[in-house]
Simulated assay, not measured.
Amino acid sequence: MWTFSSKYCCSCGPPQRRISPLERRLACLRFFGITGRALVAPLTWLAVTLLKGTYYECAASEFASVDHYSVFDKVTSSKREELLAGFPCDRPSASSDMILVRDEVALLHRYQSQMLGWILITLATTAILVSCCLARCCSPLPILQHHYWTHHLENERELFEQAAEEHSRLLIQQRLKQLFGFVPGSEDVTQIRIPSCQDWREISAPSVLCMEDATQSLYSSLGERVVGDSEEEKSGGIELKP
């Protein structure tokens, strides 16, 4: 969802770019697909909870209708609420009549909870079926092109992450070599460089990623000071002789 919203809401994009109707339809298709997949986990948890009935029984026992039970005729309303709220706690000191009422109320609540659970499952299944059918009918792409487009986006994201990781590693290794004179993990270290106080101050300063007037974005806290060092300054390191 973050990638999807950044593509259409990012302020770094061209201000005059117009989104075509095809892009809007594909964006809506992806939005509803992401939303549907995100709702699977909470709906599943809610359905399982309702089918089990324990949470519903605890929540609804205080509001159960017990006016037709004679055991509650001489019980005040506040005491009745207290007794009903304690039904799920299974108190052993209750009378036999109260235990009978408690079991009947618990059984009724379990029936209601399971009924709500199956209704939720039916509605969710129907909604998913209708949504999938509408998505395929309203999609501007045929089925084979839709599959290709989906796999293309997945492969693009995966390869981009691999390339970005490799690129950042190479860039950081280059700047570390300019700062210290060697790359971590290198076996053949013949020259090291001692950073100056100005170097440490430069790399300790906060960096800004996308500056409006800059030709390149600065993604490293090692700073421009290290990148801009001349070759004469780099050659003034300490040579390590075997």
Rank of each mutant, 00 (worst) to 15 (best):
T125S: 15
A64T: 01
L22D: 06
F4C: 09
L144D: 14
L134R: 12
E165Q: 07
H151W: 13
K234N: 03
V40C: 10
W118C: 14
V71T: 10
R91M: 09
G33N: 04
S196C: 05
I194S: 03
A164G: 05
K52F: 14
L141F: 08
A38H: 05
K177W: 03
S20F: 09
P206L: 08
L43S: 10
E57T: 15
C58L: 09
H167Y: 07
R193F: 00
K52I: 15
L22K: 10
R91V: 07
E202H: 05
L171K: 09
S113Y: 01
D229A: 14
D73H: 13
L141I: 06
T49H: 11
S217L: 15
E57S: 13
V227I: 12
D90L: 07
Q191N: 03
F4T: 07
P15W: 03
I192E: 00
E231F: 02
V48H: 14
R18Y: 06
S235F: 06
L176Y: 04
S204D: 07
H109K: 03
T122M: 14
F182N: 00
A85Y: 10
Y111Q: 13
S139N: 11
D97K: 01
L26Y: 02
D73F: 13
E224I: 07
T44G: 13
F160T: 09
K74R: 14
G185M: 09
S20A: 07
S230E: 04
E233P: 03
S70A: 14
R193C: 00
P184D: 07
G185H: 06
S78D: 11
S65H: 13
L209R: 04
S207K: 07
H152P: 02
R157S: 15
S5D: 12
K234G: 01
V66Q: 08
Q191S: 04
S230K: 03
S70Y: 12
L123P: 00
L153V: 06
H109E: 05
D67R: 02
G236C: 05
C133T: 11
D103C: 05
L39N: 06
S168W: 15
L123R: 02
F32K: 07
Q145S: 11
G117D: 01
W118M: 15
A27K: 03
L171I: 07
T122R: 10
L43H: 04
E104A: 08
F87W: 02
S221K: 08
F180N: 02
C133S: 09
C137R: 15
C132R: 11
S65A: 13
L209P: 00
S93C: 02
D97S: 06
R91S: 06
D67A: 03
D199C: 01
K52W: 15
Q191T: 00
T190S: 12
E231V: 00
T125Q: 11
A205S: 10
I119F: 13
V101L: 03
A38P: 02
G181K: 00
A94E: 10
L159V: 15
A47C: 11
L120C: 12
N155Q: 12
F180T: 03
F182H: 01
